[in-house]
């Protein structure tokens, strides 16, 4: 079924919207949730919550790209669950490595005094990622958006894992420099 037909089902408040979404994007959402949570049950609950959030958002929202819309919902829900699990001293694994890598780009301190304009920072990060060469951009997004394991990225792009890690490291440094040059004290 086409994305637009699925969205229309949501707008029509037709229950089939959920099953059609699950059929077409269930695995996609589940893979994102699993990358972050590494726990089948938590991942499944986040995917179900994704459908519920999609149901609540449509209408009035009409996503331009349904996969990215659902993926973002899953990512946010899964990350919230991850933070909850961390507080409960659960979780860890590959996704913790993703976060630890991102620590290269930030100070790790709470910037209570200096309130960073989140919207401006988001735009700057978007501009940085958009400006990367296509292949590097995809590798960056697969790692830091989809939280894909390095080994999987290496498999997809036919690279060695070490090469992927070095490429990511270079891009993290570039991101930090890019943001610092633009006045963002991270």
């Amino acid at each position: 079924m086409k994305d637009s037909d699925i969205i229309q089902l949501y707008w029509d408040r037709n229950d089939r919207a959920i099953s059609e979404t699950s059929d077409k994007y269930g695995r996609y959402c589940r893979s994102i949730a699993k990358n972050i949570l590494e726990n089948e049950q938590d991942a499944e609950e986040c995917v179900n919550d994704t459908y519920l959030n999609a149901w609540n958002a449509m209408p009035t929202h009409w996503p331009e790209q349904l996969s990215a819309f659902l993926g973002k919902l899953t990512r946010n829900l899964s990350f919230n669950r991850y933070k909850y699990n961390r507080a409960e001293k659960r979780g860890g694994g590959e996704f913790t490595l993703v976060l630890d890598e991102l620590a290269d780009c930030v100070s790790g301190k709470d910037n209570v005094e200096q309130e960073i304009d989140r919207r401006e920072l988001t735009e700057a990060v978007n501009a940085f990622v958009a400006g990367l060469p296509e292949r590097k951009r995809k590798i960056f997004v697969r790692r830091y958006w989809y939280a894909d394991p390095v080994s999987e990225i290496a498999g997809v792009y036919g690279m060695g894992s070490g090469n992927v890690s070095k490429t990511l490291e270079r891009m993290r440094k570039q991101l930090r420099n890019y943001l610092t040059e633009r006045g963002f004290e991270l």
Binding site: Y28, P63, E64, Q65, S67, A68, F69, G71, K72, R75, N76, F79, V98, L99, L102, C105, V106, R118, L121, T122, V125, N126, V129, A130, E134, R137, K138, F140, V141, R142, Y144, W145, Y146, L186
Partner: peptide, 17 residues
């Protein structure tokens, strides 16, 4: 930073997927 990266443009996310 992970949350901010979550707000990347849909087109960029879609492309990498």
């Amino acid at each position: 930073l992970f949350e901010i990266l979550g707000e990347l443009d849909d087109s960029i996310v879609e492309e990498a997927g």
